[in-house]
Nucleic acid binder design. Structure first.
Lengths: 241, 241
DNA sequence: TCTAGAGAGTTGTTCAACAATCCCTCAAGA
DNA sequence: TCTTGAGGGATTGTTGAACAACTCTCTAGA
């Protein structure tokens, strides 16, 4: 996220220093708290509907209420928390309409990115290869959480081919929100499993440069994904039926 | 933005009360401050690059620093302000890359929305008719600020046809950021003028249901718009050349 | 069964203080 | 002349406490 000035090419060691500094602490307390909570939410440790009490979190995280609220805001903007006036912040409970909405925008962005691809340097597909391989590997191990992560990364890297910071950001938010939905259904394995091989198919089409076919395949892919998720959603266990 | 429970149909007068309350104070102080600043930024009263001093604004607006900072955060998320650690918030200075990026996402969303339109109820085009008329009227009067506003509303209403809250939100941010760019060029009239009639053309195609042609027209439209804006940008007056 | 109201608990907002950082200036040194 | 580094003023980052405003729940009373 943070933009650092590129060190001059001749100063090789500066590169590594810059890399270290980047990981160092160029962030505010609120951002670090947000990062911590973000993981909790994305990993599903905090189930949708959970209220995040200011009092409790201030105690646990050893930050002031103001700083905590700042972190809340950051996550609210990412769609990972919702804020209700005078009631606090909650992990969002997405309903079916949200799913449809999410997939609508997702199809718009992802398919359009693929459709507009041209003169693609094969090197740029490298991250996608890695993600597909990671997904296949995790599937073999039966590690479905890792499959989910690999899938998310695949799609994030896919839109990254567009070279647009704002598209990246929009997609990131989209995928994070979508991940919330997966946590509310009973058996995410069933949902992720088919897409391990479909990601491979998609990647093959990109390698051979068949972007139009890839775009169409992705369109169907996302429609199927949506349908399955919606179906799983209707059977989901709920606390307030 | 805020979702209110609909009053029961039989209680007619409640409707008007609800409408009043809506405008009343169903918002936090921070939101009201943000609304105030938002207008200043969008209208161009605060030129890009301006730093918004906490000290000064706290004095003028009679709110606490914390509340002000919360308002800053809201606007930062909308892309109307940028925040630099330990340096404060600034009105963003978009560069040419930002313009290209903005238009990239804009084409993706707007064209895709139009392309996917089907079975469109003519009633839903009503707001678009109004916006086009408002634009034409403002152009006749020579009120270019109003032309700009009408144009923005036209495009906002256009994507609204997709019925997607998240698409609306993304587009809103996009258009707001873009408006910043228009404030940095010398003669915005030249830029807005051609699109008064092009919006009309586009709308006509939607009325007759020729969505594919409309999508293609919009694609060209946005490319032209981008090219002109970039060109105007290169000639823009700058403080630090 | 419904309503009004009291009370507890939580969030919204403000304030004042201190810590951390940036930015400018200026002087010493190569 | 250019670079480097050390002040020092100004601004932002963070904290904790206090009070106001609001929601939610429960109960008394009609």
């Amino acid at each position: 996220m943070a933009a650092f000035p590129e060190p001059p090419a001749h100063a090789g060691w500066l590169r590594t220093v810059a890399a270290e500094v980047r990981t160092f602490d160029r962030s505010s307390t609120a951002e670090r708290v947000a990062e911590l909570l973000r993981h909790r939410v994305i990993e599903g440790d905090l189930p949708p509907g959970t209220r995040l009490s200011e009092e409790q979190l201030v105690e646990v995280l050893h930050v002031s209420r103001n700083t905590l609220r700042e972190a809340f805001r950051l996550l609210t903007h990412e769609g990972l928390l919702v804020h209700r006036l005078h009631r606090g912040v909650f992990v969002p409970e997405l309903d079916e309409d949200d799913l449809v909405d999410l997939y609508r925008l997702r199809r718009t962005i992802e398919c359009d990115v693929v459709r507009r691809l041209e003169r693609l340097d094969p090197v740029r597909l490298r991250p996608l290869h890695d993600d597909v391989a990671a997904g296949e590997d995790a599937a073999r191990r039966g590690d479905w959480v890792a499959v989910g992560t690999a899938n998310m990364r695949f799609h994030q890297h896919l839109v990254a081919l567009a070279d647009s910071a704002r598209i990246d950001e929009t997609a990131a938010r989209l995928l994070a929100e979508l991940r919330l939905a997966f946590h509310t259904v009973a058996a995410p394995q069933r949902l992720y499993a088919p897409y391990v091989s479909r990601n491979r198919t998609l990647l093959d089409l990109l390698v051979t440069g068949e972007t139009d076919r890839a775009a169409k395949e992705l369109e169907v892919y996302l429609h199927d994904s949506e349908a399955q998720l919606v179906q799983a959603y209707r059977k989901r266990p709920r606390r307030n039926p």
